[in-house]
């Protein structure tokens, strides 16, 4: 998220404007600028961004964290299996006797990748389908609405389990597709209703009267005015996707060993957590903090974009 230039002092005539096309008064209060002003003032937003940035950094450069915080040399010794935290190895060891901090740090990558990729994919699908259904109406709308109902009626864990067991040699890419396939319905409904609300607006009629083709109407006039709520819902959804991916790993139908992910670590922990609670605690802590940050951030963004909630 880039920071827009702060509202400069108005009526400052002593200094000549550096760029000539900058407006002389404060920038116009658009919805996004207004929302950003709101978000910027809330400490919880910054806390969430900090956690997400930290987790993002562990996903991008896990070596940095393993070098800084643990004496891990990359070797696993079964003799050290499930040992608790010690100095030099603050998270203890996992079942194979590997340094647990290194494992937990490496586990962040699939979660974040899935969260971002699934949300982007589902957003794309729902924007396209919602635009088509809302704009054209008629049989296109009926067909897409029925399809949405089918996807909506399919329970998440059940549907995902059946699909993933049907294709046993799946990696993160296939899991992303499955999560997109099960996750587009709600956003499509939001997009469709937004498009229906916007498509009869005066500016769309005016554009239509000047001879704009349907594709231009949809992309230039309807889309920019209908897309914001869907993006907000998508942001709220990132945390749920990460949680869902970890749930499937945990149930043993998602990623498979030797992949490293928080869900798989929790899957291992379930047999040993009564005697070795550190196996449960650390991946659970990281997973929960990540999901919590995304959910709180999504909440804040929704509040900022919905003036009724203020």
């Amino acid at each position: 998220m880039t920071s827009p230039h702060p509202p400069g002092p108005t009526g400052d005539l002593l200094l000549p404007a550096a760029d000539t096309d900058a407006p002389p008064q404060a920038p116009p209060a658009s919805l996004s600028r207004d929302a950003w002003q709101q978000l910027r003032a809330r400490p919880v937003v910054w806390a969430c961004l900090a956690v997400i940035a930290l987790i993002g950094l562990t996903a991008a450069a896990p070596g940095l964290f393993t070098a800084l915080f643990t004496d891990d040399d990359g070797r696993c010794e079964l003799a050290r299996s499930k040992l608790g935290p010690t100095t030099g190895h603050p998270f203890g060891y996992d079942l194979q006797g590997c340094d647990y901090l290194a494992q937990v740090v490496r586990g962040s990558r699939p979660s974040l990748l899935a969260g971002v990729a699934v949300t982007a994919g589902a957003l794309l699908v729902s924007v396209v389908l919602g635009l088509l259904a809302g704009f054209y109406g008629g049989w296109v709308d009926s067909l897409l609405s029925r399809a949405t109902e089918v996807a909506f009626g399919l329970p998440f864990v059940l549907g995902a389990t059946v699909i993933l067991v049907a294709f046993p040699r799946h990696g993160l890419g296939a899991m992303t597709l499955v999560l997109v396939a099960l996750g587009w319905s709600t956003m499509t409904r939001v997009m469709r209703s937004q498009v229906i609300a916007v498509k009869d607006a005066d500016y769309v009629r005016a554009a239509r009267m000047t001879g704009a083709r349907p594709s231009r109407l949809m992309l230039r006039h309807v889309l920019p005015n209908a897309v914001t709520p869907v993006v907000v819902v998508a942001m709220l959804n990132v945390g749920n996707v990460i949680s869902g991916e970890a749930t499937l790993d945990f149930l043993g139908v998602g990623l498979q060993y030797p992949a490293v992910s928080w869900g798989l670590q929790l899957n291992t922990a379930q047999s040993y957590f009564l005697d070795h609670p550190h196996l449960l605690a650390f991946p659970a802590l990281f997973l929960s903090a990540t999901v919590l940050s995304f959910i709180l951030l999504g909440d804040a963004v929704r509040d900022a974009y919905d003036p009724k909630l203020r």
Binding site: G239, F250, L266, A284, L287, S288, V291, L292, I295, L296
Partner: peptide, 11 residues
């Protein structure tokens, strides 16, 4: 409630 919503059900 925020924490409960964020923590996965199996945890």
């Amino acid at each position: 409630t925020t924490v409960v919503i964020a923590v996965p059900v199996y945890i």
